[in-house]
């Protein structure tokens, strides 16, 4: 870990201003992913801006009956919130399927969104990785790729996004609220928040440099059975092989997104329209452009079966 200077800030404005004043700065909140990466010098900020003092840890009703979740709300608190449990169960379930009790106590809403990939080649600084070091190559392609992406990948990167929460937010059509230098705020639909790797896998979101997430807004609750089906090798404390976030109505229609298959939560509204026809129809459409490796081709079958299970559970 390289040396860095450290400051605490008290307001979003102060945070973004501090970012502007310091070269190579990073915001830190929970720190559960950033410090992990800093120890390996995958991240090497020279200035840390501790945003924990920002009063962004509230969950509030929005005027239209939705929920505004402060960026600093801890994963545990979000999953335990009565409204989230009752009206956004897919989100509570996704959060509870992720990480461990200790990590959820620390990890924040914004930090969870900004988690970086768990690709083992990204984590090994001796190996080429276009995400860690643009232009160095991708060791995962042709390497051990069992956990990695089957769709939306590129010749530069086959990493997946590790967040469970983000997959739930994708079916909930959440909106990410941010503030930039000069106090400019904006709202980004979660659909437009993440990027596919393409030729620039090191750029993972559409946030600008120094743009700070302040909240995640959920629209009014959606009717239907909420579920989050996470499949992994061990029963807990593991990243998904495949996960399915779903909200399914009585008539069989609904919304569905996959985790563990791509560089972002994977959802496609055309495929989703096939839900009443069953999992096979949805999966065929949703994963029609899949380019799996020999190690992860099973994820195609697994995704379809997990989806079928989610549909049958919702109906049952």
């Amino acid at each position: 870990m390289k040396p860095f200077t450290y400051q605490r800030v008290r307001s979003p404005a102060e945070a973004v201003a501090a970012f502007g004043r310091n070269k190579n700065a990073k915001f830190i909140a929970g720190g559960t992913n950033l410090l992990d990466l800093m120890k390996l010098q995958i991240e090497a900020p020279s200035h840390l801006i501790d945003v924990n003092g920002l009063a962004l840890d509230k969950i509030e009703m929005t005027p239209d009956g939705g929920l505004r979740i402060g960026a600093l709300v801890r994963n545990t608190d979000l999953a335990a919130h009565p409204r989230v449990r009752r009206d956004y169960a897919v989100l509570a379930r996704a959060l509870l399927a992720g990480a461990s009790g200790q990590l959820r106590n620390r990890a924040t809403t914004a930090g969870n969104l900004l988690q970086r990939t768990r690709c083992p080649y990204f984590y090994d600084t001796n190996q080429p990785c276009n995400k860690r070091q643009p232009g160095s190559g991708c060791a995962a392609i042709g390497g051990f790729s069992r956990q990695l992406a089957v769709i939306g990948s590129s010749q530069a990167c086959i990493a997946t996004h590790p967040s469970d929460m983000a997959v739930a937010l994708r079916v909930l059509d959440a909106v990410v609220e941010t503030v930039k230098t000069g106090g400019v705020t904006r709202q980004i639909n979660i659909r437009d928040f993440y990027r596919l790797p393409g030729d620039t896998p090191h750029i993972e979101t559409n946030l600008a440099d120094g743009e700070l997430i302040t909240a995640v807004v959920l629209p009014r609750p959606v009717e239907g059975k909420h579920g989050y089906r996470k499949v992994r090798d061990r029963a807990s404390y593991a990243f998904a092989l495949v996960s399915v976030a779903s909200i399914i109505s009585r008539d069989g229609s609904g919304k569905v997104a996959l985790g563990g298959v791509a560089h972002m939560p994977w959802r496609n509204e055309t495929a989703e329209a096939q839900l009443p026809k069953g999992a096979k129809a949805v999966a065929e459409n949703l994963l029609s452009d899949a380019k799996p490796t020999e190690h992860n081709a099973f994820k195609i079958t697994l995704a379809e079966r997990a989806l079928a299970s989610a549909i049958s559970e919702a109906k049952g």
């Binding site: 089906r229 499949v231 992994r232 029963a235 697994l302 079966r305 997990a306 079928a308 299970s309 049958s312």
Partner: peptide, 8 residues
């Protein structure tokens, strides 16, 4: 698990 094959 009959759908996903997870073992418990």
């Amino acid at each position: 698990d009959a759908a996903t094959g997870e073992v418990r």
